[in-house]
C-alpha cells in the first residue's frame, strides 16, 4: 500500500484501524501492553490489600473516605467510557466530525473526574493531614490511586493531542489506529477504576 493510499484512501474499509499491517501490529501490540499493565495494577492492588490496615495510628479508610464524591467520580468515568465507544462507532462509519465531538465529550468527562480527584487529594492532605508519609496505608493509597490518576492524565493528553493533530485532515488509515488505541487505553483506565472503586472505597468504608 503506497503512502497516498494510507493518507488519502479512495475507499475507507469498515475497520480502518486494522486495514494496514502497521495498524494490525499496533492493535495486537497494544493489547499485549494492556496485559502487562494488568500485572502492574495487580501488583499495586496486592500491595494495597497487604497494607490497607497499616494506619500507624493515623487516619483509617473508614475515617477518610466518603462515597458521595467517589460516586460522582465513578459516574463521570464510566460515562466517559461510553462516550468513547460512541466515538469509535463513528470512526468505523467514517464520520470524523461526530467522532471528534464524542472524543471531546470524553475528554470533558475525564477532566471532570480529574478535578474531583485533585480536590479529594487536596482535602486529604490539607484537611486531614493524611499524606504518603503518614503510614504504610497512606503510601499504598496514594501510589495505587495516584498511578491510576497518572494514567488518566496521560490518556487525556494523548486524546487531546490526536484531536488537535488531525482536526484539519480528518480520518485516514494512518491515524485511525492511533485513535482506536487511545480509546482502548481509556477503557482500560475505566476498568481499573471499577476495581479501585470496589477494593479501595467500597471495601474501605463497609
Amino acid at each position: 500500500m503506497s503512502e497516498q493510499d494510507i493518507l488519502n484512501p479512495k475507499h475507507m474499509p469498515h475497520d480502518p484501524e486494522k486495514a494496514t499491517l502497521e495498524g494490525k501490529n499496533k492493535f495486537m501490540g497494544f493489547w499485549f501492553f494492556l496485559g502487562g499493565e494488568t500485572v502492574l495494577f495487580a501488583s499495586l492492588f496486592g500491595t494495597y490489600l497487604a497494607l490497607n490496615d497499616s494506619t500507624n495510628g493515623g487516619s483509617s479508610s473508614e475515617e477518610l473516605f466518603g462515597l458521595e464524591l467517589v460516586f460522582i467520580m465513578t459516574m463521570l468515568l464510566l460515562t466517559s467510557s461510553l462516550t468513547s465507544v460512541y466515538a469509535m462507532y463513528h470512526m468505523k462509519n467514517h464520520a470524523f466530525k461526530k467522532m471528534q465531538i464524542w472524543l471531546g465529550i470524553t475528554v470533558a468527562l475525564g477532566l471532570g473526574f480529574l478535578g474531583c480527584e485533585i480536590y479529594e487529594f487536596y482535602h486529604y492532605i490539607h484537611g486531614e493531614h493524611f499524606t504518603m508519609r503518614s503510614s504504610a496505608f497512606g503510601s499504598a493509597f496514594y501510589t495505587l490511586v495516584g498511578f491510576h490518576g497518572g494514567h488518566v492524565v496521560f490518556g487525556l493528553l494523548w486524546i487531546i493531542a490526536l484531536m488537535i493533530r488531525n482536526a484539519r485532515r480528518g480520518l485516514n488509515l494512518y491515524n485511525a489506529p492511533k485513535f482506536y488505541l487511545a480509546s482502548l487505553y481509556w477503557h482500560f483506565i475505566d476498568v481499573v477504576w471499577v476495581f479501585i472503586f470496589t477494593v479501595v472505597y467500597l471495601m474501605g468504608v463497609l
Partner: peptide, 14 residues
C-alpha cells in the same frame, strides 16, 4: 526518595 513507608515496619509497612 519520597519518604513512603511500604517496607518500613515503623510506619506499618512490610
Amino acid at each position: 526518595l519520597f519518604g513512603a513507608g511500604f517496607f518500613d515496619p515503623a510506619m506499618g509497612g512490610n
